[in-house]
């Protein structure tokens, strides 16, 4: 019995890992294609049919490029930076419920790597640790621009984590649990949290842009001021890891947005499907629905990137501390009052 669980979880973990890597890979292609579409260009279309092999070609290019090491006294930390970024971006996927359950050979397979009691806090813990990759890499580069970028990234992430945590508190008050699995189960049918927590959702969305270092909050890699940002001194696959980590964390944060606010794998008529057609079919469609929602958010990230220009640094801090945090606190108070009134 124990061995069966280990094998089952092992398969789920490997599958989640592979899917995240694949998604991050193709998110790079999607970004270029969507950018091209928004700017009325064609985009990469040479490698494979319609450019479908472009990410592989990019990866091959990055792997085969020369590894350049700057003159830094901290060689080890310089090497560790991208590794931390990448592993932290991938670790969050462990607690996301990708589907309810599948029945394989009479066994219920739960489509989640681990269902810990404090899954939501785990996500925040991993997010907050992810800054170390940028900070250590930026500092060890021994370059003032990299260091400035690392400082910016750190202060931005710390500031927006506060608002993000506060916006989620309202959701936790409503659902009464920190387990992502239960939060997903509570949103059956069209009972999505976004309808009950619209303000919280908007705050969370803005903060997740800041947490993944995406435009309009990509001050850490602001080319006009900082050359390339924290990865100025990096070359070859190490830089590839930083870029890849950004896409992986974009995929994961889209998944978290979908699970927390957009009903996870739930869709209207899921119960009817489970009763009449079969549990596996209903949950298979559920996984597809979750991925559709994730794709929508990834598209949204890219859409915003090519629509809204970058903020100035003081505007970013102003938005974080003076607008989003008070709004999140107001949201908590409103949620508390409404819960008390309707209990």
């Amino acid at each position: 019995m124990d061995q069966a669980i280990i094998i089952e979880k092992g398969i789920v973990i490997v599958a989640v890992f592979a899917i995240t890597m694949l998604m991050a890979m193709y998110a790079t292609l999607a970004e270029r294609k969507i950018a091209a579409w928004l700017q009325d260009r064609i985009g990469p279309n040479r490698a494979g049919f319609g450019g479908i092999l472009q990410p592989l070609a990019d990866g091959l290019k990055l792997f085969s490029k020369e590894e350049f090491m700057p003159d830094t006294p901290n060689k080890f930390l310089f090497l560790v930076g991208p590794a931390i970024s990448m592993s932290m971006a991938l670790m969050t996927s462990a607690v996301i419920p990708w589907g309810d359950k599948l029945i394989v050979g009479g066994r219920e397979v739960i489509l989640q790597a681990t269902d810990i009691n404090a899954a939501l806090l785990y996500v925040f813990a991993v997010l907050s640790v992810g800054v170390y990759g940028i900070m250590i890499g930026g500092w060890a580069s021994n370059n003032k621009y990299s260091l400035m970028s690392a400082m910016r990234a750190a202060s931005q992430m710390i500031s927006y984590e506060v608002a993000m945590g506060l916006s989620v508190i309202a959701l936790i008050m409503m659902s009464g649990t920190l387990s992502l699995k239960e939060i997903a189960l509570q949103q059956q049918g069209m009972n999505w949290n976004v309808f009950y927590q619209p303000l919280g959702f908007i705050i969370f969305l803005v903060c997740s842009f800041a947490e993944t270092n995406r435009t309009p909050f990509d001050l850490a890699e602001c080319e006009a001021e900082l050359i390339g940002g924290y990865h100025t001194e990096y070359s070859s696959m190490r830089m590839g890891f930083y870029l890849f980590a950004e896409y992986a964390s974009m995929f994961i944060s889209s998944a978290i947005l979908a699970v927390l606010y957009f009903g996870a794998y739930n869709y209207p008529g899921m119960e009817w499907m489970a009763q009449n057609v079969g549990v596996n079919v209903a949950n298979g469609i559920g996984i597809g629905v979750l991925f559709l929602k994730i794709f929508f958010f990834i598209f949204f990230y890219m859409w915003v990137r090519w629509t809204i220009p970058r903020f100035r640094y003081d505007q970013l801090m102003h938005l974080g501390w003076k607008i989003l945090i008070p709004l999140a606190i107001v949201n908590i108070i409103i949620t508390g009052v409404v819960i008390l009134l309707f209990q």
Partner: peptide
Amino acid sequence: SGAIMILMLF
């Protein structure tokens, strides 16, 4: 690790 040490490093 996530808040205090990052501020300290900062």
